[in-house]
Nucleic acid binder design. Structure first.
Lengths: 189, 189
DNA sequence: CTTCCAGGCTAATACAATTAGGCAAATCGT
DNA sequence: ACGATTTGCCTAATTGTATTAGCCTGGAAG
């Protein structure tokens, strides 16, 4: 090995930082190269194309987010687990908007399968065990909850709520209450 | 006037078609120019820059979506209204994935204010009148419902549900039932 | 009929993406 | 220690998108 300046990890991290600063859609080879202190063509020894830059960020984000969500879930159940889990998403999205956007980047099926993506669904499924839903509803509830959390967070992140004065945290608490309520209504057949 | 080949409307429509075909993020000046049968620089007589191409698609999509949602809402109330409204979103997203993605494009505040965007919130607010929620919850519910619908639709559109065999329409019906249930639980104080 | 102008065209520049081939430093076998 | 090899970034060159500047033409107006 010669002097290792660029590694896959450094590259992904640099790209993630760029994403958080200027937005995921503006992650560009030159911006990442500049941040790493190398020339743009040097990147192509480590990635196949510009798309892979974004894929790396997506994988990093899914991983980080899964780790946070898992931490939030640890030792909690029922409503507590739901709130902690959803809060982990929301906090991550606020701290790392570019990475959060990256987590929704469309990966090809094999890559997606190897990513931390499926772990997210598994965690939601685990979370839902606290609500013992009838068997056939499990999958529906995973989709519903995943959609609801992501939808709320992404709308809030996009600034869609700024035109009404209502406090953001209060609305969020209301949404979580409502989700909890809905799931409890659904439970026990 | 000389032969009017490009108009603002044609341009937006062409860009929207490109978006639906190859994805909103790949809407490019040359693709739109090709479709219109003109050379790329000719576009700049009608738009300021490439970003405006996307803005036009976003505005078109918000408008179309608002129209469909309004039609869905007409003459309905309560659960019926909720289902029709949400279905309108989901159907639009399936028929026009590129435009649906465009509807989430971040507009500058003034443009957003003049767009059909605010009408969407108003419609949700109107829809919620069928659930008479206590006053202070109104805004929270708008955010919650908007987020839930958008989140579910965008996750489904991204193919996030394909790894489980469960029927998509059944899951969707479950989600709508659950939303209705949650809102009814919240109603009347 | 001639003048003007809307509306698209060609030419030219800048930046992002990508490929090809070079050069130096670190490594390895002897 | 020493040359062969490999590793890892660099320069140069190509293509495509974004954008500006200035030209050219056909029809509207007088």
């Amino acid at each position: 090995m010669a002097r290792a300046i660029i590694t896959a990890e450094r590259l992904a991290l640099a790209a993630a930082e760029v994403a958080d600063e200027i937005g995921f859609e503006h992650v560009t080879g030159s911006a990442v190269a500049r941040r790493l202190g190398v020339k743009e063509p040097s990147l192509y020894a480590h990635i196949a194309n510009a798309r892979e830059l974004k894929v790396r960020v997506a994988l990093l984000a899914l991983e980080e987010l899964a780790a946070r969500a898992a931490g939030a879930l640890a030792g909690r159940a029922g409503r507590d687990a739901l709130v902690a889990f959803a809060d982990a998403y929301r906090r991550y999205a606020r701290e790392h908007p570019g990475r959060y956007a990256a987590a929704r980047f469309e990966l090809d099926p094999e890559t997606a399968a190897r990513s931390a993506g499926p772990r997210h669904s598994e965690m939601i499924r685990a979370l839902l065990r606290g609500y013992d839903l009838p068997e056939p509803d499990q999958t529906d509830a995973v989709r519903f909850l995943g959609g609801a959390i992501h939808g709320y967070v992404s709308l809030e992140l996009a600034g869609g709520f700024q035109h009404t004065p209502r406090d953001a945290d209060a609305s969020w608490a209301w949404a979580l209450d409502t989700l909890d309520l809905a799931l409890r209504c659904r439970s026990t057949g």
